[in-house]
């Protein structure tokens, strides 16, 4: 267990948005339609903005003088605390939007609860981020519905995306000692409390999308604890951190 669960928790929030924001930004200029290019860039931009706030606060709480950029660009994979869902590759556009929806639906519920955090700094960040996340979940949910209930091909691809990503949902809700400490301090909600509303939300969207939620409670884990990330994260960091690693000490 880490020395400071508050720092760990803030890294979880910030690494989720950093890693997912990076993934979404990989779409730049290659979306299926111009409006989606704009929307994806906008989503990535919001997530990177939230990263600056969460990791900024993490550095402050840690008290070792590390900035948000230091945390983003100079930690190796084992120190990243994002859930495995966010580091999964983009796949096709359907897979990207399914990943987004599965995350957004959790994110908006989490941020909403965090607006009532006992830590005013957390509540303040959450209040700003929840507005963006509400818009994200509306858009990703609509896209999942439109493509799930579109053509045979789009339906097939969306079902495949849901089947592929479903085992990564559970990690969002299974508390560990960091989550327990945060809940006890009133800084963050009990994650298990968020699950019922999430399941309802998903059931509604997937029903309208004519998609079937897999009948399995299996959940991969190891992302938010940092114990065992997927192979994908290291490659992402190789690209993301390259300039800072190749030219140490430079300012940009």
């Amino acid at each position: 267990m880490a020395a400071d669960p508050f720092f760990e928790f803030l890294c979880r929030m910030g690494d989720n948005t950093l890693v997912l924001g990076h993934r979404v930004s990989e779409w730049c200029g290659t979306a299926p339609v111009l409006e989606e290019d704009i929307a994806l860039a906008n989503t990535a931009l919001d997530l990177i903005g939230q990263t600056q706030m969460w990791l900024g606060l993490a550095g402050e709480v840690e008290g070792k003088g590390r900035s948000a950029d230091d945390l983003a660009m100079l930690r190796d994979a084992w120190d990243f605390r994002n859930v495995l869902l966010t580091e999964q590759p983009n796949g096709d556009f359907g897979q990207t939007m399914m990943r987004q929806f599965l995350f957004d639906a959790w994110h908006v519920a989490m941020l909403d609860a965090l607006t009532r955090s006992t830590d005013p700094r957390v509540a303040e960040i959450a209040a700003k981020a929840v507005k963006e996340a509400s818009y994200h979940v509306e858009r990703s949910g609509d896209t999942v519905i439109g493509l799930g209930d579109g053509t045979d091909e789009s339906h097939r691809r969306m079902q495949a995306a849901l089947d592929l990503l479903w085992p990564y949902v559970g990690e969002l809700f299974v508390p560990d000692s960091v989550d327990d400490a945060m809940a006890e301090a009133g800084i963050a909600p009990d994650l298990t409390d968020l699950r019922a509303a999430y399941d309802d939300h998903l059931a509604k969207v997937m029903a309208t999308a004519t998609l079937t939620i897999p009948d399995s409670a299996f959940a991969h884990k190891g992302g938010k604890s940092g114990f065992r990330h997927s192979e994908h994260l290291g490659h992402m960091l190789t690209e993301m951190q390259w300039l800072q690693r190749a030219y140490p000490g430079a300012t940009w």
Binding site: P32, G94, T143, L147, G150, E153, S154, R157
Partner: peptide
């Protein structure tokens, strides 16, 4: 992106 445009 064709399948996406067609689907939507």
């Amino acid at each position: 992106g064709k399948w996406v445009r067609d689907g939507l």
